[in-house]
Design a protein around this nucleic acid. Structure first.
Lengths: 205, 205
DNA sequence: CAAATGTACTGAACACCGTTTATTAATCAA
DNA sequence: TTGATTAATAAACGGTGTTCAGTACATTTG
């Protein structure tokens, strides 16, 4: 008598089908193509059906944003194997930017758009994905402290500062605020600024 | 026979009237209230009329964004009077964040939304406001270098790094990505991270 | 001064959007 | 088989940015 189980399974399948259609549209055509109506078209259901499985568009975007975090943590994995914690730290920064560069829409969803956060807030829930990604950073910084590479003793504060810096650089680029620098110099300038930050914390943090 | 002059004047007045209505709506009710139709209502003209004075909504947003820069540069003014260039630098950072905190919608327009930048791009124009605000920072950093406070010799690269850091911290806050820290600790944590950054560049840059 | 030209403006439409609701069709339990 | 539950939808609501044909008025010309 597994009827309720089957129903539950079917429900999950439908949620997944919707999410996958959303992801496909999103990755193929960017944010503007992810309308409830477009998703409905893609899965050949009516727009109203989406609302039987997701409360609203924000909740759907939050689910997409979770997928983004899985992708990002994947991208971080091999960097975490690096022996030296400082090398690891620098590599994490590099990959944060690279991830944003390769997946601008996902990054948007993960760190810039307010919509997915609003979905969280109205569920009175906690941003688990963000927290666990941040903890990756904290662990790494803590190792730097333990090895005596940093004078600072507060790994969390140091991590926030490092995240801010790398994020700022990334967000300004992504939102076209670095286009005031000529295209030729831009890449070099950004690389220099990134290196300068690394050197500065290497010797001064 | 100043008819064409009068017409030109009337045209500028209308552009100004539209922009002021947009600004008013924007500051009073946030971004979502700035629709072409809302602006048209406010100035008691039809929506189509707006398009006789601004190419599209992006162009209007770009004009608003320029107003934002004037406000921000105003907010910077008194900090620029500070004697010590490093104190000045720190104060500029503080005010960047404070400006964002006090004018979140404007800050959005100035540094986060892509729309106004798209308006610029399709006119093949340069982001003058951004450049001149950035130059304020470069000048300050250059003074720090000249006074021997920083070892680095490239003021532009150092400025980009500093801007990135302060911007990142600001953008993460504004976009609710720091709400994973409990509300009580958050403010303190951010202040600590900001101070840590300042100390680090003070001794290590 | 009257007719012709130019232009400022608008109503209505187009093609979208997120979301809600009343209703129908299908499935399940008794 | 009947009655209750559930899944899906058509249609609408109230918005959005934008375009365009047409009107009414101002200006120039004969």
């Amino acid at each position: 008598m597994g009827i309720v189980e089957r129903k539950e399974r079917e429900r999950e399948e439908m949620r997944k089908r919707i999410l996958e259609a959303a992801q496909k549209l999103f990755l193929e055509n960017g944010y503007e193509k992810v309308s409830i109506r477009n998703i409905a078209d893609a899965i050949e259901y009516s727009p109203a059906t989406i609302y039987l499985y997701y409360k609203d568009k924000n909740e759907l975007l939050y689910a997409l944003h979770q997928i983004g975090f899985h992708k990002m943590i994947d991208a971080f994995q091999s960097a975490l194997q690096l022996e030296d914690p400082f090398d690891r730290l620098v590599e994490l920064g590099r990959r944060y930017f690279q991830f944003a560069f390769d997946n601008p829409e996902l990054f948007d969803l993960m760190f810039i758009m307010t919509a997915p956060m609003d979905a969280l807030a109205c569920k009175n829930d906690i941003w688990d994905e963000g927290k666990s990604a941040f903890n990756l950073l904290v662990t790494c910084v803590q190792e730097c402290i333990d090895k005596g590479l940093f004078k600072t003793q507060d790994a969390e504060v140091a991590s926030l500062m490092i995240w801010s810096s790398v994020h700022g650089y990334t967000a300004l680029f992504l939102r076209k605020r670095l286009e005031m620098f000529e295209e030729n110099r831009r890449k070099e300038l950004m690389e220099s600024a990134f290196n300068l930050f690394n050197e500065t914390i290497r010797h001064g943090l």
